[in-house]
């Protein structure tokens, strides 16, 4: 597996991803396989984080990669990195499932878990599965952890929670305008801090 390595710089990583995606668009299965190796772990982790269910996360990642294969020719690098595009394919599917599940849960009057995300201490995943030595992940976590707690919580709810602006505001008992501002400030700060390490 050739997951983006600890020593690979972000710009180079994105360039390699874009090149591989271009080859995938041309029907190159080897490129697809390599792209899978590079993307699958963060995409799968995100799906698990959103859905708290490994079986559903596998379905989502499966569908996302099949869509990536089918729609690789529609990718436009001017609209974001290849990884962000693949993540969008994955995250949208995961959030669709999450919302569908919530609707069912609401119908069944089952209370939603207070923690939107996977309980990191009781995920049922093995220690080996959770092992991560990626500098990329460490750097992102450090950048996220450096944000003010209110910006962190707003960003995480927005990214992993599958909630609307209004639902996030209600969940955090905070005015909607404040939530928007926290997300804006948090994301811009995150952008600066991730850029600074390049």
């Amino acid at each position: 597996m050739s997951e983006s390595g600890p020593t690979e710089q972000p710009d180079k990583r994105h360039a390699v991803d874009a090149l591989l995606l271009k080859r995938v668009a041309a029907g190159d299965r080897a490129a697809f396989s390599e792209l899978y190796d590079r993307f699958s772990k963060p995409l799968y982790s995100t799906a698990v984080r959103i859905l708290s269910d490994t079986a559903e996360a596998q379905d989502v990642v499966h569908d996302a990669f099949v869509a990536l294969w089918d729609k690789a020719n529609t990718y436009e690098s001017s609209r974001g990195t290849a990884f962000s595009w693949a993540l969008t394919l994955t995250r949208n599917r995961a959030i669709d499932r999450l919302r569908s599940r919530r609707r069912r849960a609401e119908l069944l009057e089952n209370s939603a878990p207070s923690d939107l995300g996977l309980d990191e201490n009781s995920s049922g995943l093995s220690a080996d599965d959770s092992a991560d030595t990626s500098d990329q992940a460490a750097a992102v976590r450090a950048a996220v952890d450096s944000l003010p707690p209110d910006q962190q919580s707003a960003l995480k709810l927005a990214f992993f929670g599958g909630l609307t602006q209004e639902e996030i505001a209600a969940r955090l008992s905070t005015p909607l305008g404040t939530i928007k501002a926290r997300i804006r400030r948090g994301l811009l700060k995150l952008r600066e801090r991730l850029a600074a390490r390049q």
């Binding site: 963060p42 799968y44 982790s45 974001g80 990884f83 969008t88 599965d129 990214f159």
Partner: peptide, 26 residues
């Protein structure tokens, strides 16, 4: 911003996908 938001994926607790998933996708 979209690329930055995508990086948040790395902040999720890392989970390695099962090997059969790749086989299934291929």
């Amino acid at each position: 911003c979209r690329s930055t938001a995508a990086e948040l994926a790395y902040s999720a607790p890392p989970v390695v996908p099962p090997t059969h998933l790749k086989t299934r996708i291929l």
